[in-house]
Nucleic acid binder design. Structure first.
Length: 256
DNA sequence: ATGCCGTGGAAACCACGA
């Protein structure tokens, strides 16, 4: 089973790129982030024609998450994280696909630090940790995939010294990620590529793609039984080089 | 400290991203 995550940066503006990649990669399930579209503007028909059932949680202009499943409808189990009723951002959706529970998340960016956006990021992280613990305790096979907006360690950043006070790399945020993983999750890409420089995002600015000045911020966390089935974990880097492409590349895992 | 690029929405500029 192949599961992917892709921050598309605008699902309608990016539709040709998304369809081209789906056709090429043939993932069984896909987590999308940054739809930047309200529910009624989600391209349901185009994805259905491409062979994918979908559930989505949109929002005007910003955020927005979706889960796609090849040849079937994902079975939705949750939308939104518990714990903050006044949170209006569409950043979490969860569904069962082929017997795997998939949580699709778009963690807040958090910049600038310090400030209310950074505080919101930390609160969101705490809510994610509480829910993740419940999922682990349930004993279900779980994959938590998406844009975490965190580079977990120095080798996940092209120039760590320049990112110390950025909301994607502040100690508090790296510690939050580490303590989430410590619940018993496996970081799939790091598990299979312990020492490699792997990036999933390259800013449009300053020729960051051409210089391979990237960040690893899109992650797969696997529950213990799913981790035992892990056979491949890769980044579809070439997609970042396409015309009118997202600033993120698709990331995927293959399970036995 | 800011723009560099790019998206979407509203209104010919702005908020936001990472």
């Amino acid at each position: 089973m192949k599961i992917a995550t892709y921050n598309v940066n605008g699902v309608n503006g990016r539709l040709p790129v998304l369809l081209r990649w789906l056709e090429e990669a043939q993932p069984d399930a896909v987590c999308l982030q940054e739809l930047k579209a309200p529910d009624e503007k989600f391209p349901e028909k185009a994805l259905e024609d491409a062979g994918y059932g979908a559930i989505w949680h949109g929002q005007k202009s910003w955020n927005g998450v979706a889960i796609l499943a090849r040849g079937k409808a994902p079975v939705e189990t949750r939308r939104g994280l518990p714990g903050e009723d006044e949170d209006t951002h569409s950043r979490y959706i969860e569904a069962a696909v082929n017997g795997v529970l998939i949580g699709c998340l778009y963690l807040p960016n958090g910049n600038p630090w310090p400030g209310p956006k950074f505080d919101y990021k930390l609160r969101w992280f705490e809510r994610l940790k509480r829910h993740a613990k419940d999922l682990l305790d349930s004993g279900a096979p779980v994959v938590l995939a998406g844009d975490y907006n965190v580079m977990p360690t120095d080798i996940d950043v092209y120039a760590p010294e320049r990112w110390q006070d950025d909301a994607l790399f502040r100690d508090e945020v790296r510690e939050a990620f580490a303590s989430l993983v410590a619940q018993g999750w496996t970081d799939a890409l790091r598990k299979l590529h312990p020492d490699e420089r792997i990036y999933t995002f390259w800013d449009y600015l300053r020729k960051r793609w051409e210089r391979n000045a990237g960040l690893r911020i899109d992650h797969f966390l696997l529950s213990p039984d799913v981790a035992k089935r892990l056979k491949q974990a890769e980044v579809d880097r070439h997609v970042r080089g396409w015309e009118k492409t997202s600033d993120h590349a698709p990331v995927w895992i293959a399970l036995r």
